[in-house]
Structure formats: C-alpha cells, structure tokens
Simulated assay, not measured.
Amino acid sequence: MGYTEGPRRIVRPDAQELTGRGLLGPRTAAAPGGPAPGLARRELHQPRSGQLLDAVRRLDAGLDDQACRSLAEWVREQYTTSYGSVPLGFVARCHLGPPYVDHQLSLFHVIVRHFAPAEQMPEPFSAARMLARSGGYAYVEVHADGLILPVLEDGTVVRP
C-alpha cells in the first residue's frame, strides 16, 4: 500500500497559546488593536539613553529604600514609554569585590541581591549571569517572556 498525500491543513496557535509558551511578550498579545508583535520587539532593541543607564547603575549604589523605590519607578516609566516593555530586572557585574561577582536587581520588588560565584541565582535571572560576568555589558535585561537583552556601556542593545 503506497502513501498518498492528503490535503494539508495549516494550524496557527492563537496569541494566548503563544504567550503561555513565552513566545510573545505581554504587550504584544494583549488587546486587539495593540502593536504588532514585530513592532514591540523593535522598540525593545532601541538604544538605552544615558540617563537610563545611569539610573540602573545607581540602583545598586546603596541608596536608602525610599530613594531606591523612586528611582525604580522612574526606570519602569522610562521602559514603558520608550520601549513598550518593562524588564523583570537586571543582572550585572558587582563592584563590591570578593566574595561577590554579580548581582540581581528586580524592578518590581526593588531588591538588589549580591551573589558569590558558588551561589545559585534564581530563574529567570540565572540565564543572564554568564553574560553579566563577561564584563562586556553595562547590564543584562531579563524580561518576563524569557528574553535576555545585553546592554553595552554606550546603551546599544545586543540582539540575541
């Protein structure tokens, strides 16, 4: 018995299914009439401003709780208006010295946590750890959909 090819059917997953798999960010799968998926991704790849780079650096500078919260709110607002998506947080090299080599910064809880080389970094931040340790980036953004975006010292975003 020979194989005969039947009619083909194209199946496309809906936006909710893609979002659940982390293939589309929360902004792109939201409401009808929102930006196309490619548009949101293009916005995320725009260079980061000098002010934003400085603000992210200052979040690890030992600010008091109120100043840190205010600065984190400003950073969230900048990401929302300029790039259309706010990262969960950042991973960067730590300048405190031994035993710390890197740190995780969460914008939503405004938590800065420093890590020694042998300590496990929680998911999804651990995926950005080796990039941050390389020293080639100002910081590495970690987004809710699993997107990891390294940012160079001049604000250029490196495409994955």
Rank of each mutant, 00 (worst) to 15 (best):
V75L: 04
A67P: 08
G34Y: 02
G33V: 00
L63D: 02
A36G: 07
G33H: 01
A31K: 10
V75Q: 07
R57D: 14
G84S: 06
T80N: 12
G34I: 01
D65F: 10
P35Y: 07
P47Y: 04
A31R: 00
S49K: 05
R57W: 13
L59Y: 00
Y83D: 10
S49F: 03
D64G: 03
A67F: 02
Q51P: 12
P35C: 00
V56R: 05
C68E: 07
A61C: 01
L39N: 10
L44S: 11
A67Q: 06
A72F: 04
A40I: 07
A30I: 03
R48G: 06
C68T: 11
W74H: 09
P37Y: 00
E43Y: 15
A40L: 14
D65S: 15
E73G: 09
L53P: 03
R58M: 05
E77N: 15
G34K: 03
A72K: 00
A40V: 14
Q51V: 06
S70A: 13
A72N: 05
E77R: 15
S49N: 02
L59T: 01
W74K: 09
P35T: 05
S70V: 12
R48F: 05
G38V: 01
L59A: 01
A61V: 06
G50C: 06
S49L: 09
Y79P: 10
P37I: 05
A61W: 06
A40C: 03
L39W: 01
